[in-house]
């Protein structure tokens, strides 16, 4: 793999026209760096779910990624409503999304569980009324 890489994407709440752009760009970066395809798939799926959460729930947010020879680390920081009960939010099928979001194909209550499933580690810090920081890591040193 080539040299370490990092970058930042800005996310606007409810900007559905561009939702998913950041994860798509991250996918391209990882492809160009020569990361193995199964790991690219896991990283981009986790990033996509996290990005959609920010677009759906927050006013705005940033996605920052760091790729080193050992890991892909992605941090999403948002200005959003916060998550009152993280354990509950991690439950498959639990969602607070409104119906119009469900009719767009989201809000199925699978986002956070899907990030957890694809990442090697996941940390969520949230303050109700302020925002949420979500960080996940995918290890590169061993194969998927």
């Amino acid at each position: 793999m080539t040299n370490p890489s990092e970058g930042t994407f800005f996310l606007n709440g409810k900007d559905f026209a561009n939702a998913g752009n950041a994860s798509g760009s991250l996918k391209k970066v990882l492809e160009e760096m020569g990361v193995p395809p199964p790991l690219i798939r896991r990283a981009s799926i986790a990033a996509f779910e996290a990005e959609m959460n920010t677009i759906i729930y927050a006013v705005a947010g940033i996605m920052h990624y760091y790729v080193t020879p050992g890991t892909i680390r992605v941090v999403l920081q948002d200005m959003g409503p916060g998550i009152a009960d993280i354990d509950l939010a991690m439950t498959e099928g639990y969602s607070t999304a409104p119906d119009y979001i469900r009719d767009m194909g989201f809000g199925s209550g699978m986002g956070l569980p899907n990030i957890k499933k694809n990442a090697d580690s996941l940390a969520i810090n949230s303050v109700v009324g302020e925002g949420t920081t979500l960080e996940f890591v995918i290890n590169l040193d061993k194969t998927a």
Binding site: G93, S95, D99, R102, D103, G105, S108, G109
Partner: peptide, 25 residues
Amino acid sequence: SDLLSDVIGNAKEGFVWITFQVHMN
């Protein structure tokens, strides 16, 4: 279908509905 509005609009009486959607609605 997983879209409630679609099901309400297009499914017919007596049909069995296959979905991934679990929302109360």
